[in-house]
Amino acid sequence: MTEYAARIEIPDHYRNAVIPHIMVDGAAAAIEFYAQAFGAVELFRLEGDAGRIVHAEVAVQGSTLMLGDVDVPFSIPDRAGASVALHVYVPDVDGLTTTAVNRGAELLTAPTDMPYGARQSMLRDPFGHVWVFLTPIVAA
């Protein structure tokens, strides 16, 4: 371990995690959408020229998501498909799905009990990102 690495401490919300960092066309609007549709809480915002968001962080159900306005070398998702889905466990997948769709998310899969012990829905946000929301099913 380098001397520098030995002196820093990884923040708890980054520990033991792969942190998604998504790029959007309209990061400020995306943050507002995530707050209204998914209950996200903005943690940090760094703005650049003309109000563009260079880097921001939001918490979605306690998980950190990094985002910013699209810039080289990144691109925004192709509306025909996505190579990544963002999975988040939530207390009420049905309620969150209804709220998100009412706020403008596209319903890809309605809440469904899955054989692996979760009730799951799949949504595409207005910025092209696919989200999978899950609530554990309590065995009877």
Results as ranks from 00 to 15, higher is better:
Ala139His: 14
Arg124Lys: 14
Ile53Phe: 10
Asp69Ser: 05
Val130Glu: 13
Asp49His: 15
Ala30Trp: 06
Gln120Cys: 02
Met122Phe: 00
Val84Tyr: 14
Arg45Gln: 15
Ala28Glu: 15
Val101Asp: 14
Ile19Tyr: 03
Leu86Met: 10
Leu65Ser: 07
Val90Lys: 02
Pro73Asn: 10
Glu47Tyr: 08
His21Gly: 04
Gly95Leu: 05
Leu65Thr: 05
Arg15Ser: 04
Asn16Lys: 12
Met1Ser: 15
Ala100Asn: 07
Ala40Thr: 04
Phe127Cys: 06
Ala28Phe: 00
Leu43Ala: 09
Glu9Gly: 12
Asp125Ala: 00
Asp78Val: 01
Phe127Glu: 08
Ala100Pro: 04
Asp94Thr: 07
Thr97Leu: 00
Leu43Ile: 07
Gly68Ala: 13
Ala110Asp: 11
Ile22Tyr: 04
Pro111Met: 02
Asp69Tyr: 10
Phe74Val: 06
Ala40Glu: 06
Ala29Thr: 03
Arg7Glu: 13
His87Tyr: 08
Pro20Trp: 08
Pro111Val: 02
Ala28Leu: 05
Asp92Glu: 10
Ala30Leu: 03
Pro11Gly: 07
Val132Thr: 09
Leu43Pro: 00
Thr112Leu: 05
Val54Ser: 14
Ile22Cys: 02
Ala29Trp: 03
Ala37Trp: 08
Arg45Met: 09
Val130Phe: 05
Met122Ile: 06
Ala80Pro: 00
Thr64Ala: 08
Leu108Pro: 03
Ala118His: 14
Arg124Trp: 11
Ala82Met: 11
Asp78Phe: 00
Val132Met: 11
Pro111Cys: 03
Pro126Asp: 12
Ile53Glu: 15
His55Gln: 14
Asp78Ile: 00
Tyr14Glu: 09
Thr98Glu: 15
Ala139Glu: 15
Ala118Glu: 13
Phe127Val: 09
Gly26His: 13
Ala27Leu: 00
Glu57Gln: 10
Thr97Lys: 04
Asp78Glu: 08
Asp49Ser: 13
Pro136Asn: 11
Asp92Ser: 03
Ile10Gln: 15
Tyr34Ile: 02
Arg15Gln: 08
Met122Leu: 03
Ser83His: 10
Ser75His: 12
Met114Val: 03
Arg52Ser: 13
Met1Asn: 13
Val132Cys: 00
Val18Phe: 13
Asn102Met: 04
Ala139Leu: 12
Ile10Val: 12
Ala27Val: 00
Gly39Arg: 08
Gly81Leu: 04
Ala100Ile: 00
Ile53Gln: 15
